[in-house]
């Protein structure tokens, strides 16, 4: 599905990522772990193309995407949910979803607002409400729904649990599991190991912009040294 090889990226003069390698198979939920500042969000932004400078090989469904603009990558079926949500506060819930809408993919079951409302019932009750007047948890659901409207094959979920009440995070976990059942792959970045363990098949540990570990969550659990060193648990 997604193959990242030797990804390097920069913020202005600062070199942030060094030869990051990772891949996501179809139907997988993969977690990118690591402490703050480890480069998780930058990896996400680099994949979707929201950094000024990146180098390396990015292959998405057999297409090289490293030289494409964010909108071109998104149109290929790679959705991005940013960590700070970035919903359009002045637009209504419905309108937010419409902004994310893209034509149905070949052979795919296109997402409609109604299907999003089934996934997140809370949103159905507030279709006409300006998104700025929603709680943080509801906004988090909306931002995921908005990305789904683009009918992605793979969703990049950046820190979905950050700053959200544990109860909403549990709902989020359920939704991700549902998505996986629908055949959508997910790459999520996470600091909360509890949350990552609930939903992911495999994980990578990133530290100082370098991939330090890759394996299943069970393998990680058997390596307390790694958790101690890189996740500082």
């Amino acid at each position: 599905m997604l193959e990242v090889a030797k990804l390097n990226s920069w913020y202005g003069p600062a070199h942030i990522l060094f030869d990051v390698n990772l891949n996501v198979m179809a139907g997988e939920v993969v977690a990118l772990l690591g402490r703050n500042g480890a480069g998780k969000s930058t990896t996400m932004k680099s994949i979707i193309g929201l950094v000024n400078r990146r180098e390396g090989r990015l292959v998405f469904r057999n297409d090289e995407i490293s030289n494409l603009a964010p909108f071109e990558i998104s149109r290929k079926g790679l959705g991005y949910v940013p960590e700070d949500r970035r919903i359009f506060t002045e637009l209504t819930v419905e309108e937010n979803l419409e902004v994310g809408r893209q034509p149905a993919r070949e052979g795919g079951n296109a997402w409609t607002p109604d299907r999003i409302y089934t996934l997140f019932p809370n949103l159905a009750e507030m279709r006409k409400r300006p998104a700025g007047r929603m709680s943080g948890g509801e906004q988090q659901m909306l931002t995921i729904g908005r990305t789904l409207m683009g009918n992605p094959y793979l969703v990049l979920l950046d820190e979905p649990s950050e700053g959200i009440a544990p109860k909403i995070v549990e709902q989020m976990a359920e939704a991700i599991i549902l998505l996986k059942r629908e055949g959508v792959s997910v790459l999520l970045s996470e600091q909360n190991l509890h949350f990552a363990r609930l939903i992911s098949d495999r994980c990578y540990i990133l530290e100082k912009g370098i991939t330090q570990f890759s394996g299943t969550v069970a393998e990680l659990d058997s390596r307390p040294d790694l958790r101690e060193t890189y996740l500082a648990l």
């Binding site: 649990s161 009440a165 544990p166 109860k167 995070v169 549990e170 909360n192 509890h194 609930l198």
Partner: peptide
């Protein structure tokens, strides 16, 4: 627990 903490899986 009902409004905030949830089932406790996350701490």
């Amino acid at each position: 627990q009902a409004v905030y903490l949830g089932s406790g899986a996350l701490y």
